[in-house]
Simulated assay, not measured.
Amino acid sequence: MKIYTKTGDLGTTALFGGTRVPKHHMRIDSYGTVDELNAFLGLIRDQPIDQAYKNTIIKIQENLFTIGAILATDPEKATLKSGKDRLNIEKITAEDIQLLEQEMDTMDAALAPMTHFVLPGGHPTVSFCHIARCVCRRAERLASALNAIEPFEPNALIYLNRLSDYLFVLARKLTYDLKAEELKWIPEKT
């Protein structure tokens, strides 16, 4: 099978189910941003970090493929004539969301309480986390806008929201692990 199909040369692409839409369609932008986020998570996973973080990131990446598939499915063709779901994959579950929360709680327990906003940076690995967090927030905004028009699995949107929080806590924990400096943002008083 060739990678190039030439079917998108005129600016359209197919959703799962066959419906063709413009490549600038909100649905394409949503799952494309989830894909971009997944690539940044791969970059974080490739850093010299604890294997436990890498294992969690792999699970997150797998869940992002699920979310991408949900977003890439035409809601009008999500159910087959037989009544079965077109997407024959596991959905995002409450347990997937709870895993992120548990991981955050575990990392947070080792950190000093937050008293101020922190400036992104301090170490390249930490910066990658902050970039991923920002991409995740964009993915969430796009998915939220899409959900307002064409609702989809509620847990997918919740997962993106929780994931951006996880990436922030991971950035703080890696700052701690890597003995990098966490710079607080303290606005000047006028």
Rank of each mutant, 00 (worst) to 15 (best):
K2C: 02
K2E: 11
I3N: 04
I3R: 04
K6T: 05
K6E: 04
D9L: 05
L10H: 12
T12W: 05
T12Y: 11
G18F: 03
G18E: 05
R20M: 01
V21T: 09
V21K: 09
P22V: 06
H24N: 11
H25P: 02
M26V: 12
R27V: 10
I28Y: 04
I28V: 15
I28W: 05
S30V: 01
Y31K: 04
E36L: 04
N38D: 04
A39T: 15
L41D: 03
P48F: 00
I49S: 06
D50E: 14
Q51K: 11
A52K: 14
Y53Q: 04
Y53W: 06
I57W: 03
I58F: 13
I58Q: 08
Q61H: 10
F65P: 10
T66S: 13
T66H: 13
A69D: 02
A72F: 10
T73E: 10
T73Q: 12
T73K: 08
P75W: 08
E76M: 02
G83I: 05
K84P: 01
D85S: 15
N88Y: 03
E90S: 13
K91T: 15
I92K: 11
T93G: 02
D96Q: 03
Q98I: 02
L100T: 08
L100W: 09
E101V: 09
Q102R: 14
M104R: 12
D105E: 12
M107W: 07
M107E: 08
D108V: 06
A109Y: 06
L111W: 10
A112T: 13
A112E: 15
A112C: 03
P113T: 09
H116Y: 12
H116G: 00
V118A: 02
L119R: 07
L119M: 13
L119P: 02
P120W: 08
G122V: 10
V126D: 00
S127R: 03
F128W: 14
C129V: 05
H130F: 13
H130N: 15
A132R: 05
A132F: 09
R133G: 07
C134F: 03
V135F: 09
R137D: 10
E140W: 08
R141D: 04
S144E: 14
A145W: 08
L146P: 05
L146N: 07
L146I: 09
I149R: 09
E150M: 06
E150S: 07
F152S: 02
E153L: 12
N155Q: 12
N155H: 13
A156R: 05
A156D: 06
L157Y: 06
I158Q: 13
Y159Q: 06
Y159N: 03
N161F: 11
D165I: 00
F168D: 09
L170H: 07
R172I: 01
T175F: 02
D177T: 12
A180K: 04
E181G: 01
E181I: 12
E182S: 14
I186P: 03
K189Q: 13
T190H: 09
